[in-house]
């Protein structure tokens, strides 16, 4: 117990030292360059961030980005899971839909944004881009895990005539959860990056992307850095919150040990 506490303290201290090292390096380079327009110091960036945080529009922008991107993300998780199950179960649908998944996966984010901006209102575009980034990830993981479901359990369900719905609910879905959760964890960072990039290119109103690009146009480099810092902070926060929720979920007796896949012992 005491050793664990000591280890936790040591880890915390190390993290703080790492952050201080990089901030120090940034400060040093900015002092050496001495050109705020090119590289504002961490202190100037922090001041800009604090000033921006004092404005009501800051929160409106953050809320706008978060709601749009998370909506796209959640839709991608639901649609990706359904498509994963469908394409695992049906060879026909797999053959039909596989090219679509490959296309979405292979197309660069920037070109996709430029195409989608022609078709969609600027307000919906970032959410849609987040959706497109996460969709193939969840879809592929879900499809793979459905295919890798323990054949003995599937056979047991067949013998007891569970029927399709009960088999999916009781046998396939629980076995797919680790893959789905892993895709969700990775996807949240993808969704955030693609969503903000889309906001920048589409100059979406009430978003982080618009003031980010405006600060660049107005040569307010410190503001640009502050918004970028905000994007990074929110990305880390989202991942942490998701990881914490996941941990809580996996601590419940039903799902405890799920990631160890005890059925495959």
């Amino acid at each position: 117990m005491y050793e664990t506490k000591l280890e936790t303290r040591a880890t915390c201290l190390r993290s703080v030292l790492v952050v201080l090292f990089w901030l120090g390096l940034w400060q040093l380079i900015s002092v050496l360059l001495n050109y705020e327009l090119l590289l504002p110091s961490p202190v100037q960036t922090a001041k800009s961030l604090l000033r921006l945080m004092g404005e009501a529009s800051f929160y409106r922008n953050v809320y706008g980005s978060l709601s749009r991107i998370l909506t796209g993300y959640l839709c991608a998780v639901i649609v990706g899971a359904l498509l994963g199950a469908l394409t695992a179960a049906s060879g026909f649908f797999n053959a039909m839909l596989r090219p679509l998944r490959s296309f979405i996966k292979a197309t660069p984010v920037a070109s996709m944004i430029l195409v989608v901006v022609l078709w969609m209102p600027e307000n919906s575009m970032p959410g849609f881009m987040s959706f497109l980034m996460v969709l193939p990830l969840v879809w592929a993981n879900m499809q793979e895990s459905f295919r890798a479901a323990d054949p003995q359990l599937v056979e047991m369900a067949r013998l007891y005539r569970f029927g399709r719905r009960k088999t999916i609910r009781a046998v396939y879905l629980p076995q797919s959860l680790p893959a789905l959760l892993s895709a969700c964890t990775t996807g949240i960072g993808f969704a955030w990056k693609a969503g903000v990039a889309a906001e920048v290119l589409a100059r979406t109103a009430h978003s982080i992307g618009k003031p980010l690009v405006e600060s660049k146009s107005n040569l307010l480099t410190a503001d640009m850095f502050a918004w970028t810092a905000m994007v990074v902070i929110l990305s880390i926060l989202l991942e942490r919150v998701f990881a914490a929720l996941l941990k809580l979920f996996l601590k419940t007796p039903r799902w405890e040990g799920l990631l160890d896949t005890p059925h495959k012992r």
């Binding site: 005539r161 009781a170 059925h263």
Partner: peptide, 25 residues
């Protein structure tokens, strides 16, 4: 004919309790 079977392996679903496993079919 409705058939029930005890397999060589137990084939219990790990995310259900013993009671739920028995009640499921």
């Amino acid at each position: 004919l409705r058939v029930s079977m005890v397999f060589q392996e137990d084939r219990l679903l790990p995310w259900y309790t013993a009671l739920e496993n028995v009640a499921l079919p």
